[in-house]
Design a protein around this nucleic acid. Structure first.
Lengths: 333, 333
DNA sequence: GTGAAAGCGCTAACAG
DNA sequence: CTGTTAGCGCTTTCAC
């Protein structure tokens, strides 16, 4: 960034108007006579003038920039959400500052603070943990936040999700009706709100409703190899049907089963609870709880635009419909 | 963004120093007496003062923000590059404004212009097309640019790549030595610099060197279903070995082959030229030209930091080593 | 419909 | 080592 070549002042001088008028033209303010507007626009084009967004931000206290907090960049689940967010952001002319928080070099609240210092107008939060420090920083600076694809037990933050309990119950039912009675659930961090208050309770309720005593909850299973290595344990425990939160983990289990010479879905049914492209290109293809990720991102961003403009939003917690997509990893096709 | 609660002025008043001194403390300027520094820091902590990065940006003409241009958000190839970029950006305290250009709502040069208006200090460019308009805008604003995982035929922009010609030649050789003589290459856009000036010439040279007359170049094959649908044509053309630029396309071909009851690698060998996690989790696993994506991103970002600080860089075009990773889609394991 | 003027919050000479 | 003083480029009352 070097000395700006042409500023609003140059345009004003050349067009023989005041900076104020140029500013009005730039911002589409209707209080400008047609001829004046055209004269100014001609100069803008001739000089190739481009407004300095930083100066605009300082003067107007709006940066038309939103922050995106994502746990990991290389996870298609968040990438698909981000795509929905990005499209709507573009539509409303917002830029996106993205921050992943997987890197432990900086603590989460420092990352967020740096975003806040950049004066973002709003934040979309996809991490499954919202520490008090962070929540307070948002409230203190009055920055609107929308959670996308995740929840928080504070009810104060807007969120866009699906009905995780219902979805999981439906998935468990599917396998149960296929004759699988020794069902399990495989999650990463068991303490996230989605897992702790939704998935795991749904699983336990299902067991209770069907008078099944023995529960199989596998936690801290985060990636492909965790999944791959888990299968021997599943086999030992006699599990014959499993819900796996992350699809790449499910693929790990899938490959492990096949390498062991077993059959999917006969020996083990698998349903993944967050399906990306990976779930559909592996063979056998995975039965999935299909979340409308793109739409969830789009709705979240749209809601954020309203929040940033202090517009009315009807309902701060929206749940979008999901689909239980039967593929080859369950019997009942 | 609302009226900022505490500014540098408040800190100055409370600490009984001038704004300049507070500024020095914030920026780690050594010209401050220890006691003064500590007094100021105490006030900063007590008041929870956070500098306004927008104001800093306007005054200093540096935003500590870089722009990231990516063709699509939901492509793991770019996601893995981005991760390398992000880690180094964090290390040097830069924020990242990400812009995908897949959405045709706005033209590419408008997207870039909006980035430039935000006064980014530099740009990492991953799109495989760099229009003149964009190139000129970069030069005019003096914004340094580094291309990551792609090339441009202007030599003026720094780039981080692998040796595509060498890699492809090696891949073709591998298949040739497996007895495959009817080799093909599958690309998306044939007019990108990487394809037009590197991959395709390498392929043609290989054919010439081995006295093979018939060439099979399939273009505009961009995604999974394009790949899936291509196989019937490959079969018709008697192709027995193929390099596919994008791995998800390769998986499309792979599944199509298997659905046709044919065998991989016996009936067809496949090597993908840009491998992400997808290439390794499908079965049979794909033999790949393994690009060091994370490192490429990291090196590109590191180079950009130097360019932004007008530091010396030795060599503006860096090529990183790749690896030909033999898996199950080729015979010669 | 247009202009003058006062900032937005901070940095960076320049003095001292 | 510290303070004074101009800006950075733009928006936004408030007059006229």
């Amino acid at each position: 960034m070097h000395k700006q070549e042409v500023t609003i002042y140059d345009v004003a001088r050349e067009a023989k108007v005041s900076m104020a008028t140029v500013s009005r033209v730039i911002n589409g303010n209707s209080n400008v006579r047609k001829e004046t507007r055209e004269r100014v626009e001609a100069v803008i084009n001739r000089l190739h003038y481009q407004p300095n967004a930083v100066a605009q931000g300082l003067a107007s206290k709006k940066t038309t920039t939103v922050g995106l907090i994502v746990p990991e960049l290389t996870n298609l689940y968040f990438a698909e959400l981000s795509k929905g967010i990005d499209d709507i952001a573009l539509l409303y002319k917002y830029n996106i500052i993205i921050s992943s928080i997987e890197n432990r070099l900086m603590k989460e609240d420092e990352v967020i603070q740096s975003l806040l210092n950049k004066q973002v107008d709003g934040v979309i939060y996809m991490s499954n943990r919202l520490p008090d420090k962070v929540a307070n920083a948002f409230k203190q600076t009055n920055t609107p936040v929308v959670l996308a694809g995740t929840k928080d037990n504070r009810d104060e933050f807007a969120s866009v999700t699906i009905d995780y309990q219902k979805a999981d119950t439906e998935a468990l039912n599917l396998m149960y009706n296929d004759g699988k009675k020794n069902l399990a659930i495989v999650v990463g961090d068991p303490d996230t709100v989605v897992n702790k208050d939704n998935r795991i309770p749904a699983y336990r309720k299902f067991l209770a409703d069907h008078d099944i005593a023995e529960e199989h909850i596998y936690t801290k299973i985060n990636n492909y190899s965790d999944g791959y290595n888990l299968y021997s344990q599943l086999e030992k425990d006699g599990v014959d049907g499993v819900i796996v939160t992350r699809d790449v983990t499910a693929v790990g289990i899938l490959n492990s089963v096949m390498d062991a010479g077993k059959n999917i879905p006969k020996d083990l049914e698998i349903i993944t609870a967050s399906a990306t492209q990976i779930a559909s290109v592996v063979r056998p293809a995975l039965t999935t709880i299909k979340q409308p990720l793109y739409d969830m991102g789009a709705v979240a961003m749209r809601m954020l635009t309203k929040l940033m403009n202090n517009e009315e939003v009807d309902g701060i917690h929206v749940q979008l419909p999901y689909e239980l997509l039967k593929k080859q990893s369950t019997l009942n096709q």
